[in-house]
């Protein structure tokens, strides 16, 4: 049962793609999360409402539906818009880009909440003190807000990351050769679906376990100097 019939390297290739999708989505979601959190905490009503709408709607719709919407809908949209700007050939939407953008966009909403909580956990007096020392807003952000916000945001951030890794399995549905799809192909060829899906399940457990280890290290690093009860 534990012979992979030569499909080992192919699965491993898929594993790297899964990790690439997860890391690229993480980057997008973090950028969106920071923007969203700052918008939610800004004084502008319009920004607040915009960010609130974004997080509410995204968290109310399944990932798969959004991904299919972006993948199939994006295809139609691009091919309707392209001729208008004078491009006549048919454009195929890249499943990697569709997948990464969708996952990044979805988790941007979750990151917004995480970062917002982290920012709120930093005592306002410290930011005022920073300004009183004559720091520019950017300096207050990088020197005082960020280092402390990270500590409060890490547990939520870690949860989002672990959920996100598992969400990447969905990109196999829109035809990206991640490890789930590689396993499906191998399972079809060898008639050993259980073996290959079990291997992928174990690989997911390995990735999440390593992530948990790194996140714990990060948390203790950023909690240096914090007295625990």
């Amino acid at each position: 049962m534990f012979s992979l019939h030569g499909y080992g390297p192919s699965i491993l290739e898929g594993t790297f793609l899964t990790i690439a999708v997860a890391l690229s989505s993480l980057l997008i979601s973090m950028i969106l999360g920071i923007i969203g959190a700052l918008a939610k905490l800004s004084r502008s009503k319009i920004l607040q409402i915009g960010a609130k709408t974004y997080t509410t709607i995204i968290r109310g719709i399944p990932d798969l539906v959004l991904m299919l919407l972006v993948f199939f809908g994006g295809q139609v949209f691009i091919n309707e818009v392209a001729p208008l700007v004078g491009y006549d050939e048919y454009i195929d939407i890249n499943p990697f880009i569709a997948g990464v953008c969708t996952i990044g966009f979805i988790f941007g909403a979750y990151m917004t909440e995480t970062f917002r909580g982290g920012i709120l956990a930093v005592p306002a007096g410290q930011l005022e003190a920073g300004r009183a020392y004559g720091m520019k807003p950017f300096q207050v952000f990088t020197r005082i807000l960020m280092p402390q916000m990270v500590r409060h945001a890490i547990p939520g951030f870690g949860n989002n990351w672990l959920v996100m890794i598992k969400t990447t399995a969905l990109v196999s549905i829109i035809g990206l050769d991640d490890m789930v799809r590689k396993a499906a192909l191998a399972a079809g060829a060898t008639r050993m679906p259980f073996t290959f899906y079990a291997v992928v399940a174990i690989l997911f457990l390995v990735i999440t376990s390593i992530s948990v280890y790194i996140l714990n290290r990060l948390e203790s690093r950023y909690s240096a100097g914090v007295v625990k009860a």
Binding site: K166, T167, A187, F194, Y197, A198, F204, L205, T208, S209
Partner: peptide
């Protein structure tokens, strides 16, 4: 709990629906 929380739901569905037919 570790297995079902650590792996994607999609894989769990595949393991049960496609996987068990291997035996």
């Amino acid at each position: 709990v570790y297995f079902f929380r650590g792996t994607p739901l999609l894989i769990q569905i595949f393991l049960i629906y496609y996987g068990l037919g291997q035996f």
